[in-house]
Design a protein around this nucleic acid. Structure first.
Lengths: 214, 214
DNA sequence: TGTATAGATCTACACTGTAGAGGTGACTTC
DNA sequence: GAAGTCACCTCTACAGTGTAGATCTATACA
C-alpha cells in the first residue's frame, strides 16, 4: 500500500509547486525534479498529466472535509463550508481554478455535497429542491472564490475613474450615476459574508415558514 | 485600419477552432494554417498567445452586447442577459471557460456591466449595494454556465445509484434520504430559470418594498 | 541461490510558443 | 519613372512540453 503513499506525495509536491510558481509551472519534469526522480517515474502513479490534475482536484476537496463535518445549526454549517471553500482558494489560488474546470465525483466530493444536502434539508428546503439549491450555492461559492483569485473582481477596480473616462457622457449612464460608490474600495471579506447572508435571505423568504424536516 | 480587421479575422478563426476542436487545439500553428499563413504572422496582430486569449474573451463579451441593449422592465433585462450568457456558453463551450479565468475590462465588458447596474438600480437595489449584487448575479451566471459546459453538473449525474452504493449505510445520510429525487434527471434549462427566479425572490425580499430609484 | 515483479530510468519523438533575421510588396515622395 | 518607407509576412532555430517504448534495478519470495 506504499503505492498510495507515493501518489499522495506526488500530489502534495504538485500542489506545493502550483502554490509557489503557478499551475503552468507544474510540469512533469519540474515535479519529478522536486521529488528527486525522473519524469517518467510519475506515470505509473498518476496515469498522465490529466490524471495528475484530477488528483489535485481530489487533494483540494479533501481539505474541505473537516469543514463538512462541523456541528451546529444548519445555517452555520453551510456558512462554514462556504468560508472553508474560499479559504481553500486563498491557500491554493492557482490550483483552485481546477475545481470549476474539472468535474469530480470522488468519495470526498460526495461527502462534502452530502453535508450541504443535509444542512439544506434541515433548513426546510423541500426534498425536490435540495439538489438544485445545493448547486446554486456551491456554484456561487466556487465562482466567487475563483473570480477573486483570478483577479476578475479586482480587474475592474484599478482606477475606476479612468475606466469611466474612456466613455462619452451617457454611454455608461449607470457607471456615472454610481460614480461615488464605484470609487470606494470593496472589502472582499465583507462582501462574501454579505453574499452568504443574502443567500440565506433567499432561503428564508422561500422556505422559512415551513417546519424544518427530520 | 485593415489591421483591426485582420485581428478580428484571427479571433474569429481562433473561436471557430476552439468550437470545433477545443481550446487545446488553438495553437499558433493550427490557427495560422487555418488562415493560410505562417505562425509568426499572427504575432504583430495579437501580441502573443496570452494576447490571443484575451482577444477571445473580448470577442465573447461582444456577443453579449445585443442582450445588454434590450428594452423592457428591469427584471426582464436582467434575465435576458443571464440567458444570453448561458446561450453564449452553449455556442462556445470551450472558449467560455476563459471568462472566469481571465479578467477583462474592455469597453464592451463595461457596457455589459453598465446594463446590469442600471437594471438593479431600477429594481430598487440601493446604490451602495448595486456593485456587490451585480457581482453576485454575474458570478452565479458565469459559474452556472461554466459548470454546465465543463461537465461539473453532469458528472454527478451518471448513475447516481452506483455512486451511493460506494458508501456504507449512514455514511452519506442525505444522499440516502434524497435517493428518490437524486435519481431524477434534471432539466438544466428549467433549473437555470428556477435559479434566476430565486435570485429575484432575493431581490424582492430585500429591496422589494422600496420605491424604485430614478 | 534463482526468479518474479514492481518500480525507476534512458532515449527519442512530435509538438508547443516565440526570438531574430531576412524577405516582399504596395504606397508615398521626388 | 526611381527611390525610399513601411507594414506585413516568412524562414530558421531553440528551449521546453507530454509521453511511448525499451531497458535497467532492486526488492520479495521460492
Amino acid at each position: 500500500m506504499t503505492s498510495a503513499d507515493r501518489k499522495t506525495a506526488i500530489l502534495d509536491a504538485a500542489l506545493a509547486l502550483a502554490d509557489e510558481r503557478g499551475l503552468t509551472a507544474v510540469t512533469m519534469r519540474a515535479l519529478a525534479q522536486r521529488l528527486g526522480v525522473t519524469p517518467m517515474a510519475l506515470y505509473p502513479h498518476v496515469g498522465d498529466k490529466d490524471g495528475l490534475l484530477d488528483g489535485l482536484v481530489d487533494r483540494l476537496l479533501a481539505e474541505l472535509l473537516p469543514a463538512a463535518a462541523t456541528e451546529g445549526p444548519p445555517a452555520e454549517r453551510l456558512k462554514a463550508l462556504g468560508r472553508a471553500s474560499r479559504a481553500l482558494a486563498q491557500r491554493h489560488p492557482s490550483a483552485y481554478a481546477l475545481l470549476l474546470a474539472r468535474p469530480s465525483v470522488t468519495p470526498d466530493a460526495v461527502r462534502v455535497v452530502d453535508a450541504l444536502y443535509g444542512a439544506l434539508s434541515e433548513l426546510g428546503v423541500p426534498d425536490a429542491e435540495v439538489p438544485r439549491v445545493e448547486r446554486l450555492i456551491s456554484t456561487f461559492v466556487l465562482g466567487y472564490a475563483t473570480s477573486e483569485v483570478n483577479g476578475r473582481f479586482a480587474a475592474g477596480r484599478v482606477n475606476p475613474r479612468a475606466q469611466r473616462a474612456q466613455f462619452g457622457p451617457d454611454e455608461v449612464p449607470a457607471h456615472r450615476a454610481l460614480a461615488e460608490v464605484l470609487d470606494r474600495v470593496p472589502d472582499w471579506d465583507a462582501e462574501f459574508e454579505a453574499d452568504l447572508d443574502d443567500l440565506f435571505v433567499l432561503l428564508q423568504a422561500r422556505w422559512g415558514g415551513q417546519r424544518p424536516r427530520s
